[in-house]
Design a protein around this nucleic acid. Structure first.
Lengths: 352, 352
DNA sequence: CTGAAAGCGCTTACAG
DNA sequence: CTGAAAGCGCTTACAG
């Protein structure tokens, strides 16, 4: 707890350069109005001193507030997946709000494009955001919104899924191909002979980029490892329970020898429900996301493995990356892949 | 980027209480020299305003530097396990050093108690640390050092392993019992019939608390799940390669039908080496820690699963918890359990 | 193009 | 027991 006081940064630089601290500040922030000569003199000294600005002092003095807009799906009664990123965002907000960050969250409905558009319009109309964190769930609509952000020089960060040619500040999300690849491993673990695998996607949107990437990885596993298998693909576009049950029923009639089921998203719980009802307890089930329902079926043994990509951390990091970029002028990873976590009955109590 | 300025906290309080900000400061920090009446008046206002001190300003003004001592094993050529916590510690240090934290690291040799004692003596002699982060690898010696910390009111945090009755600020580490429990699951995955499992501990120290906890959890899995099995226990106290090979050789002569091997720490790589040499490629191998050697054997398929407990994050969180406690006066979790991560060939590239 | 001054919200001596 | 003043390392108008 001893006191310790270095000579002030800008003051020291100003003294050495024989200028005022105002001029030093201009050079540090690359503001205009400094003669080339003075500028280079100051820059040399800054380098020599290996000067690191004191962010505490900077933020305190400036009193600037950066306003961030968050655009993510609303957590529904069906899956609480998006509650996790939101929790991470809230946690980040708590942590940095005293450092001059304010956050406004806009939600949209994953089943309703117009709600997405409405939110983007609102953000545009308010004209007061300095950064955007978003889940680009609707590609075309996202592209249009991104155009606006770029025009306004507003940095934007994607979480959960990516749009590749976009000029985003960062993408934070899962490595989907590898995630599907691991999924296949988990489906076939310990198997010696041929197995019949049912590959299910349950989603209103057809052709989602995410699902096809997962499928690619999944298939690639069998290919690379020369695993003999029999893959049955099933896509269910009506996500209601009755529809899922009906589709599964049909699949089992056609393929009574299914041994493993892989579900490409958090709706694996509805398949678990089906298996439970049917008492198909010997069938292995692998799926995605650490949602409440899924946790219950994991605990009861109907789901064998959940693959997760730290949704809470995605939200946390997403917001923090904007903070780092805007307020701290720190470099930000343009791609930050989440780990591919394997959650089982045995480790679920310690997963976050 | 609009400017936004609230009325200053202490100033506002001082105005409302009709005192000077100096007096307000005294109350906020519970320093003496304020009349009971004034004190209670100020406290009421603080509550009403739901005043949150501005840490930026506080740290900037005080210029206090908290000195932290870190006491951990040195990463050896044998296993680089302790490089990871150190990396996390360094990362935390980088992040908070500008907020008035300085860190001194003391190493000890896991095979040499006296080196541990020597480091603790050094820390004591310097008499200048405000907090301690330590791995209490030697229980008796740690207890003696902890006594010193408590006498001096120096908060201390344990990582990796815990000493329970200690008054530590926090413990950050793995839930060992559950970790062993999961290990058993990974060993028996997909097995229908009886398997012969070899349970190995390779460590100079006999009777380490960590290993026995893992063993408890491991055995409990079989018990709880009524899994028919045959468990062979092997303890190798000489960690040299030749010794490990010799012991394994003997075990395989006696039990040629071993199908799965579980190793309770990062030395699983030496068992992988053995299996590689012997071309026992059909044997499943499960062990601990994401060290370089282990990663290689995971990649090549000799190790099936590694269980990990985010060693880097343990270091990071350990240091941050001292920072939170000392500088930010934030509450700290007395127990923070790491998740039990499962790392395979397929997801190892994304593990951190 | 440059400088001097005030201020961010707090803490720290010092004076009374 | 209390207050007034200086200062932490920056930023921000404003004046010239």
């Amino acid at each position: 707890m001893k006191k310790y006081r270095k000579l002030s940064g800008v003051k020291e630089i100003a003294r050495l350069a024989d200028v005022s601290i105002g001029t030093v500040d201009r050079v540090i922030h690359n503001r205009s109005g400094v003669s080339a000569k003075t500028k280079s003199k100051i820059e040399t000294i800054i380098k020599q001193l290996n000067y690191q600005p004191n962010i505490l002092a900077s933020r305190l003095a400036s009193g600037k507030v950066y306003r961030l807009a968050v655009l993510i799906p609303r957590g529904s009664e069906k899956t609480d997946f998006w509650d996790a990123p939101l929790k991470g965002i809230k946690r980040a907000e708590e942590e940095i709000k005293q450092y001059g960050i304010s956050v406004a969250t806009f939600f949209f409905d994953l089943n309703d494009k117009t709600s997405f558009i409405a939110s983007t319009e609102q953000i545009k109309k308010q004209k007061r955001y300095d950064g955007v964190l978003m889940a680009p769930s609707f590609v075309k609509e996202s592209l249009s919104f991104i155009r606006y952000c770029r025009d306004q020089s507003i940095p934007f960060v994607f979480i959960d899924s990516n749009i590749e040619v976009s000029g985003s500040l960062s993408y934070i999300g899962p490595p989907l191909f590898q995630s599907g690849f691991l999924g296949a491993r988990l489906c076939t673990f310990g198997m010696k002979k041929t197995k019949k695998v049912l590959f299910i996607t349950i989603s209103k949107e057809k052709n989602r980029y995410n699902y096809s990437k997962i499928e690619e990885g999944f298939k690639n596993y069998f290919f690379e490892n020369n695993v003999d298998h029999d893959l049955v693909k099933l896509t269910i576009t009506d996500t209601e329970k009755e529809s899922v049950f009906r589709n599964l029923e049909k699949a089992f009639v056609k393929h009574p020898d299914i041994e493993v089921i892989f579900v490409t998203n958090s709706r694996v719980f509805s398949v678990a429900q089906f298996l439970e009802t049917k008492k198909y307890k010997q069938i292995h089930l692998v799926g995605y996301d650490f949602s409440k329902e899924n946790q219950n079926y994991l605990k009861s043994g109907l789901i064998d493995f959940l693959i997760c990509h730290k949704p809470e951390e995605q939200g946390y990091r997403g917001l923090m990356s904007l903070y780092h970029h805007l307020a701290l002028h720190l470099p930000v990873d343009p791609m930050y892949f989440m780990p591919i976590d394997i959650v089982t009955k045995e480790n679920q109590d310690f997963y976050r």
